[in-house]
Design a protein around this nucleic acid. Structure first.
Length: 271
DNA sequence: CCATATACCTGGCAGC
DNA sequence: TGCTGCCAGGTATATG
């Protein structure tokens, strides 16, 4: 479920609850995730010193090193009472005095990896070829315009590649292109400078609003069952095949397949 | 280098 | 009810 907003909301939830708290024990129940969970993960202890996010990767820093969590397609981090019974698909637990954080991931496309304490979290190898963060100065319409020059790949697929910008997954790619009025199948290099500015603004807007909604949702949820990263998904175009376009009200939303994945758009108001 | 296909894994759902 | 096939919010890797 996780695109950038879900991961960011999860990070904030973890930080609010556990920053500065002492990790009492880490239990790895199922080490076979996307990659094998390294032995060092279970040896971690001491206070949670910091949390970070880059793209869809979440970093938890302890004295003994950094824990890198990726939620894959179906992962989430949830806060449960200490000694709560294990549910199926709960693979890793970090136990603190004030509650336990658990990685729940039915499909096991998620991962938990380790970075030694003498390295900065930014040295994580999987970050090396990623594009700019969308919610920083490193990304804007000019950056997107330059990145798209010479690229024949459909803009929707290019966004998903993580090259022009990171954190835009399958849902928000459709949502951003809808908001910017751009066809998902359009060759990247054929976007005008203005379209790149519109698209960059749309990406930033869509992600920012989703974080805000998730943050408010999180507040409600956290008091009830402690669940992190739950969203009431709100979309203008994603998963609305056959429904009337919310913007032009004349088009009917189409679903097409690009790169073996679903894309949604309005044929009447996206060009 | 670029573009495309495939693999990993489990569960929910529509249709028969 | 139970089966089958399709779909699911990610990304590393292999192949043209």
């Amino acid at each position: 479920m996780p695109e950038l907003p879900e991961v960011e909301v999860t990070r904030r939830g973890v930080e609010n609850r556990f920053l500065g708290c002492t990790l009492l024990q880490c239990t790895v129940r199922q080490p076979r995730l996307r990659w094998p969970v390294p032995e060092q993960i279970a040896l971690m202890s001491g206070p949670l010193l910091a949390t970070h996010r880059r793209s869809k990767y979440l970093f938890l820093t302890f004295e003994g090193g950094h824990v890198v969590v990726h939620l894959g397609m179906s992962g989430s981090l949830q806060i449960v009472a200490n000694d709560a019974p294990w549910r199926t698909h709960e693979h890793v637990e970090w136990r603190f005095a004030n509650g336990s954080l658990r990685l729940y991931d039915p499909r096991r496309f998620g991962s938990v990896e380790f970075i030694p304490p003498d390295q900065p979290w930014t040295a994580y190898a999987r970050l090396s070829h990623l594009g700019p963060e969308p919610l920083t100065d490193a990304f804007d319409g000019d950056v997107l315009f330059k990145a798209t020059r010479g690229r024949k790949l459909a803009i929707k697929l290019f966004l998903l590649s993580g090259v022009p910008v990171v954190g835009v997954g399958n849902i928000y790619a459709s949502e951003s292109l809808f908001r910017a009025g751009i066809r998902p199948g359009k060759a990247s290099a054929r976007l005008t400078r203005k379209q790149c500015h519109d698209l960059a603004a749309s990406i930033i807007g869509v992600l920012t609003e989703s974080i805000a909604r998730g943050g408010s949702t999180l507040k409600d949820f956290a008091g009830v069952d402690g669940t992190l990263g739950h969203f009431q998904l709100h979309t203008d175009v994603y998963d609305r095949e056959g429904l009337r376009c919310k913007r032009c009200e004349s088009g009917v939303i189409k679903r097409v397949v690009q790169g073996q994945r679903s894309t949604f758009y309005c044929p009447a108001c996206q060009y």
